[in-house]
């Protein structure tokens, strides 16, 4: 069945890298999307991809550019991103804008874990992608993909606002090319995902060990 990944804001041909989207689509088709579920998926994904809410999360310089795309000139509200949430429970994706240090890494992981599925991660700027200028430092994580799965990378130091918008549109497309009912975006199989979820639940049941010091 035909599913398209057109988004309103930009023409399909104008994207530089359509191959990965094609590959994702092919995988979907090969797995045989059921017609009824497929249509339902379409509707849900149309809604989701147009109202992706970011978590207000910024650690350093890239965060200022993130604020700039929230302001009037670049205005990401045009694409449905404007409802930045301060609580991870209400956010759809986390834009890792800035350097992640060793001390911050567990906190970031925790924020990610607190977000509700489906959730996405956008690594913004050299620091989030690979450690950037501070790669050799004793206290910088060289790439957030070492600790959480990343969906879109936006290179730059800091990326220009246009680049950020481009990256966010890529995220929209990715969301559209996914099966919502069944199939998730973690790059792992459903079985594996369920296993991890169960592992998590089991862990939290042991509430005596759960750290309530209130870091988040």
């Amino acid at each position: 069945m035909k599913r398209n990944v057109n988004i309103k804001s930009m023409k399909y041909e104008d994207f530089n890298d359509n191959e990965y989207i094609e590959a994702m689509l092919k995988e979907l088709r090969d797995n045989g999307t059921n017609v009824i579920v497929g249509c339902l998926d379409d509707v849900i994904e149309w809604g989701r991809s147009n109202s992706l809410w970011p978590l207000t999360f910024a650690t350093s310089c890239c965060g200022i550019e993130f604020m700039a795309i929230g302001a009037a000139r670049y205005d990401f509200a045009r694409f449905g991103f404007e409802v930045a949430r301060s609580s991870p429970r209400q956010a759809d994706f986390i834009m890792v804008a800035g350097t992640i240090t060793h001390k911050m890494a567990p906190v970031l992981k925790r924020l990610y874990d607190q977000m509700a599925d489906p959730k996405y991660v956008v690594a913004t700027g050299g620091c989030a992608i690979s450690g950037g200028p501070f790669k050799k430092s004793y206290h910088v994580v060289d790439g957030v993909d070492k600790i959480i799965p990343v969906d879109v990378y936006i290179p730059g130091c800091p990326p220009r606002p246009e680049a950020m918008l481009y990256g966010l549109m890529q995220l929209q497309r990715k969301v559209k090319a996914q099966r919502f009912l069944g199939g998730l975006n973690k790059g792992i199989s459903e079985k594996e995902y369920e296993r991890r979820m169960r592992e998590d639940t089991n862990k939290t049941e042991d509430y005596n060990e759960y750290d309530e010091s209130g870091l988040a």
């Binding site: 650690t59 240090t101 001390k103 906190v107 200028p133 501070f134 050799k136 430092s137 206290h139 910088v140």
Partner: peptide
């Protein structure tokens, strides 16, 4: 310290023009 990037230590291994970055 949540964004302590160790810049001062990094500088010790960079040449002067490099530290500017």
């Amino acid at each position: 310290g949540y964004i302590h990037r160790g810049i001062e230590k990094l500088c010790e291994s960079l040449t002067y023009p490099q530290t500017l970055g």
